Amino acid sequence: TRTPAEADWSKPQGKRDPLELRKSFAAAPRGVSLLIGCNTFPTWNGYPGLFASLATGNPVLVKPHPRAVLPLALTVRVAREVLAESGFDPNLVALAAERPGEGIAKTLAVRPEVRIIDYTGSTAFGDWLETNARQAQVYTEKAGVNTVLVDSTDDYKGMLANLAFSLSLYSGQMCTTPQNLLIPRDGITTDAGPKSYDEVVADLAASVSGLLGDDARANGLLGALVNPDVKARLDAAADLGDVALA
């Protein structure tokens, strides 16, 4: 009910009279919405699709990640209570939990009743949804590769602190974490004078070490590794090149 049913729109036409339109809006539901949750940020990545689907008249089937069921299960419970209090069928929001490896999402995604899919997670499964769930409108947020080009700075110390924080937050598991830092081989200009490539690398490593040197602060910044695969990739990373900071 917060979405306006009508709105007036006016576009100036210079010397001519403005173009006036009265627009009317109506919800046009598509069908059942399937929300496939991720294991790192289940609510942050789940709420936009959940509420967008409900606001446009689509019931939502919430399929949480097997390793992050509780946050979305609590969300579904409260949503069902609120729907019932407001006179709606609580089954407009339902939970479809699964065990690890059960693969419910693949089965549900191609059901003819499912017309919207909201997904956050691996690129491989996102690509599968886009290829196979042809009956649905599919929205995917897949893995990102974020690159930082270090060109120059008028605040060298601040730049290092900012990069150290970005690299450390949630142990580098956020979709916004920078993975590739591109530094000119001839170094960069800074407010502290020219810095060589090796100096920038060493200073950044020192900045990360300083940030995480206090266990209490490190605990609040890093959080837990979300699954054993992350640790395996970390252990294998040393073979990819020279290690600036273990």
Rank of each mutant, 00 (worst) to 15 (best):
R22T: 10
D239Q: 15
D151L: 10
A96H: 09
V60W: 07
C175M: 05
A224L: 07
V69E: 14
K11Q: 11
Q173E: 13
L181K: 05
F125R: 01
A143Q: 06
P184K: 10
A97M: 09
K231S: 15
N219G: 05
T75L: 08
R134Y: 00
D203V: 07
K157C: 02
A52S: 08
Q137A: 05
P64H: 07
D242G: 04
S171D: 15
I116V: 09
V148M: 05
I183K: 02
G187T: 07
V76G: 01
T1S: 12
N146C: 09
P194K: 11
G158N: 03
L19G: 02
R217Y: 10
L35W: 12
N132H: 12
L204G: 12
T177G: 00
S168Q: 07
L35C: 12
A205T: 15
L34M: 08
S86R: 12
S33W: 06
S122H: 14
S171N: 15
V148T: 02
T131S: 05
L92S: 08
A161G: 03
A206L: 15
E20L: 12
L160P: 03
A236S: 15
K23F: 14
A79M: 11
L167A: 08
K15F: 08
G37H: 10
L204W: 11
A232T: 15
N146V: 06
A192V: 01
E6W: 01
P112Y: 05
T176L: 14
P48I: 02
V145Q: 10
S166G: 05
M174C: 08
T43D: 10
F25H: 05
A97G: 01
W44D: 13
D242P: 04
L221Y: 11
F88D: 03
F25L: 05
K106L: 09
R99F: 13
T123W: 06
T1P: 06
P112T: 12
A164F: 03
D198L: 09
V243F: 07
R22A: 09
G241P: 12
L54G: 13
V148C: 02
D191F: 09
G103C: 00
A26H: 03
P66A: 05
P4I: 09
P12M: 15
L61Q: 09
L169V: 13
S171E: 14
L222G: 01
T107D: 07
T120C: 08
M159K: 01
L169P: 05
G144A: 06
T43M: 08
G187S: 11
G210P: 13
A124N: 04
V76R: 00
Q13A: 15
A84L: 13
E113S: 11
L212A: 15
A202G: 04
G57L: 06
A216H: 11
A238N: 14
D186K: 11
S196Y: 05
L245P: 03
A26V: 11
A224K: 08
G220V: 08
L34I: 10
T56E: 11
P90H: 00
P71W: 00
A105F: 10
A246W: 08
D242K: 14
A236E: 15
